[in-house]
Amino acid sequence: MSEAVLSEQTKRVSYGDTRAKVLKLFNLGDTAFHILTKSCAVAVLVLLGGVIVSLIHGSAPALREFGLGFLTSQSWNPVTEKFGAAPAIYGTLVTSFIALLIAAPMGFGIAVFLTELCPYQLRRPVGIAVELLAGIPSIIYGIWGMFVLAPFLQEHVQPGLIAAFAGVPWLENVFSGPPYGIGIATASIILAIMILPLVSSISRDVFETVPPVLKEAAYGVGCTRWEVMRRIVAPYTGVGLVGGIMLALGRALGETMAVTFVIGNAHKISPSILGPGTTISATIANEFTEADGALYTSSLIALGLLLFVITFFVLAASRLLLARIQRQEGR
């Protein structure tokens, strides 16, 4: 066999060995990447399971003592060790709902202005200014709400609301009572300001995903700007808008310090949104360091478990709603 043939065969063997080594390294890299990502996913599930187990274990004494009555009782007396979660649940849901009613339309309006109406040179500065609201610590919102917003509402807004709705069925109870300044309405306004950047930022981002050709075609056939937003942009971005609202709702449900400053921290259910109340997170923040009995501590942990369950159901409902919207779009 000639030397040329032997040299060619040697090169082929060497090339084959090198290629096998490279493929082996690629396989090792893929395997390591798969193990790493799978470990991260499993770690999240383990942490979540650990939180659930800890909450259930810590709240077990209170749940055994009070049963389902813990959900409906308005009593919260550490002296007699009688605890109920109804006022905290009511305050959490009402403040979050009112905050969403305020923040969602404002956030959508800001997003429409930034994407459709605002001069191009001002879009970035205005957008940054709105997003800066999200960087303010919650305790700063609480201090501002206590010393600025609450006195303003007490002197200039709440007396007018009480007088305006006096004698109006149902609304008279919603806007009744002395003008405390602090209360559920004040806490809802603070929450609305806190979640406003989240709603507006997500809405602006999803509005910008609409293909310009769709809007230009609508304008070309004579649609007004309102008709374009209603019939083109809103249907195209419906999933993203709902997702942003649910994220904002999740933030509102769990907010603690800002609400603690301005809600009044009263363990009672009042039909008036001007009256003081409490939330689950505010109750835990106020009283956990003072809980000196096993049943007292367990009741506070049970409140944390309830907040976890409420948040879980809100997120589950949002996923179902998003899935339904996607199915309708597919049709």
Results as ranks from 00 to 15, higher is better:
122 L>V: 00
171 L>V: 10
92 T>W: 04
214 L>S: 04
33 F>D: 10
273 I>F: 01
264 G>I: 05
228 V>C: 04
302 A>G: 09
98 I>F: 11
243 G>E: 06
168 V>R: 05
78 P>R: 13
101 L>I: 11
66 F>K: 05
140 I>Y: 09
228 V>W: 07
58 G>V: 02
237 T>A: 12
251 R>T: 06
305 L>Y: 12
36 L>I: 06
110 I>C: 12
104 A>E: 11
175 F>C: 08
254 G>R: 07
100 L>M: 15
310 I>K: 06
304 G>Q: 11
164 A>G: 00
293 G>Q: 11
197 P>Q: 02
296 Y>V: 02
205 D>M: 09
73 S>W: 07
283 T>M: 10
84 G>F: 02
80 T>W: 08
261 F>N: 01
208 E>P: 00
158 Q>R: 08
38 K>N: 13
189 I>C: 03
11 K>G: 01
199 V>I: 15
145 G>S: 03
90 Y>P: 00
25 L>K: 14
145 G>Y: 02
77 N>M: 01
131 E>F: 00
328 Q>A: 15
72 T>V: 15
31 T>W: 05
70 F>Y: 02
25 L>I: 10
156 H>R: 14
207 F>L: 14
198 L>M: 15
159 P>G: 05
49 G>E: 02
133 L>E: 07
245 I>L: 15
258 A>V: 00
313 F>W: 14
69 G>I: 02
